[in-house]
Each structure stands twice: as structure tokens, then as C-alpha cells.
Design a protein around this nucleic acid. Structure first.
Lengths: 142, 142
DNA sequence: ATAATTAAGGACAAAAATATCTTTAATTAT
DNA sequence: ATAATTAAAGATATTTTTGTCCTTAATTAT
């Protein structure tokens, strides 16, 4: 469904949402270990999320990443958007640029319904809600 | 959703199903033009489908690709399988290998339903049915 | 102030996906 | 038989994705 980049972004964000606060920041070392992702690559991804103010960071001792209310309330679609994969959910299954209701590919109508449901999933649940649903620490393990 | 490879495979197969027969074979030149795909790359893909007997080919003048009943009756999932993307529909949205009903990621249950519907779409409609639903020649244009 | 710690930034590397080109083999028409 | 036509096969190239490493900058604790 999504690229590795987006998968790591989602896992990291959910993990940060569950385990961090402004008082308890998480280092990239901790995060990448916890979600089983390549450290440096994950660091790049969190840089992007930080620049877009979806998460926050602070260097230095006891520094790290943390998340605040606005993002906790936001849907995970905002993470997907930040990774540039929002349009993946609009594409034609057969890869046709001109596919539309007016000029549909033979799978258009059925696939449209599924895409709609997917979008709903990603726009419905907030990040904090997902974090709370995480049953245990291992649920983000590879 | 799918890789370019799979997209081209699906478009090509549907196109062949609509426009070819054992008497009227289609050259790779015609096919790739019709479905707007890179010729040599598409040739490689059709080679795979040919090896797997999903389509057939014959070299020489008036040669080309064609399709026969067994594949016309088959669901498009067989093309997806041939391209090695069947497992894409089983993967966890967050990329977790251990994600399951017993140890679900926070999106597991909802995403499962969508995946089920997708599989249904791909297993439900036969290639010939899809070809017939192709309203006009342009419905496979990029 | 200094040292320690952590993220940011930039350059680079490896792997996978996508694509092209050239030669060979098969088939057909003449 | 020969030439023409077409797919098969193999080598190579390009682009994108994924990943690493090293240096710099910011912050904090002492």
C-alpha cells in the first residue's frame, strides 16, 4: 500500500504519540529500535515531520522528539500527506491518468468505493486514538 | 496500488483480450502504443505472461500476442499473481510482519475489510468480462 | 566556559524498479 | 532457400527508493 518511508513515518508517529510528552522526549535511537526501522533513514523522515510541525524536536541532553495536542487530534492522513502519498489514494488501479467517471477504466466504479473507504479510515481516526489502541509495546514490532 | 509492471500487465492483457484472437494477433508495437506503455519494458512483461501460459505468442510475419479461452475466463487476480504482487494485498498497512488478528496493529481490523473487498474485485471479474466493459478504445489510454 | 548529548544537514551508497538497446531465434511469405 | 517479420533473450542504462555515514548546529548539564 504505502512506501517504506510512509510506513516508518506512521509507525514512528504512533509510537511517539504513545510514549512521549513534552517532558519525556524520545531519541531517534529509541524510536527506531522500538518500531524496527533503519535509524538514519528514520531520522530523515522525522526531520520532514518536524519541519512540517507535525512533531517537535529538541537537540541536546534529554532532547529528542515529542508530539503535542494539535497533531494528537489530527488524523493519520496528515502523516500520509506529509510523506507525499496522499495522491496514491486517488490513482487509477490500472495507472490511467484520464480515468474518471466520465471515461472510466473497467475497474473504476468498484475501485472507487474501496478508495473511499480507505480515505475514511485514514481521516477518521486521530493519532492519539490509534496510540491508545496500541495494546502493548510489541504491537509496532516488525 | 500496484507497480508499473503490474499496471502494464493488466492493461496489456485487457487490451489483448478485447482486440485479439488466434486469427488476429497483436504485435508488441501495437499493444504498447494502444495502452501507452514503454515498448521494450512491456515486451519483457508479456514474455513473463507468455511463459506462464496466460497469453500466447508466435514470432514471424502476422505473429504477435493473443489470448485463449482459459485465460479469458480467469480472473484478473491471475495476472496480479503472475507479476508477484498478490502478497501486496496481504501486507499490513504499517508494514508489520507480525500483524495479525492475534497481534493487531491499530489499523488491522478496518484495513482487513478493505483488503477483502479488493481481493473480491480482483477475483470476481473475468478478463473477458472486463474487456467487454471497455467502452471504447480510448479507455486504456494514459 | 566546557563537555556531553542530541537532532539537522549534506554527501554518498546500495538496492530495486523502470526502461532501453542489441542480438538471436522462430516463423512465415515469397 | 531466402528475405522479411516478429517475439525471446541478454546486457546495459537510468531513475527512484531505501539506506548509511560524517560533519555541523543546538541545547543542556556541570
Amino acid at each position: 500500500m504505502f512506501s517504506k518511508k510512509t510506513e516508518y513515518a506512521l509507525r514512528a508517529t504512533i509510537y511517539i504519540a504513545k510514549h512521549s510528552s513534552e517532558e519525556k522526549k524520545l531519541s531517534i535511537v529509541d524510536i527506531s529500535k522500538a518500531i524496527n526501522s533503519p535509524q538514519s533513514f528514520t531520522a530523515k523522515i522525522l526531520q520532514v515531520l518536524t519541519k512540517k510541525k507535525l512533531i517537535h524536536s529538541l537537540p541536546g541532553p534529554n532532547g529528542g522528539f515529542y508530539i503535542t495536542e494539535p497533531t494528537l487530534q489530527a488524523p493519520i492522513s496528515c502523516i500520509i500527506d506529509a510523506m507525499g502519498e496522499n495522491e496514491a489514494l486517488d490513482k487509477c488501479v490500472l495507472g490511467l491518468k484520464k480515468c474518471s467517471s466520465a471515461n472510466p477504466c473497467p475497474l473504476h466504479e468498484q475501485y472507487k468505493k474501496v478508495k473511499f473507504q480507505l480515505k475514511e479510515i485514514f481521516e477518521e481516526k486521530s493519532i492519539s486514538k490509534l496510540a491508545k489502541e496500541l495494546k502493548n509495546n510489541k504491537s509496532l514490532q516488525y
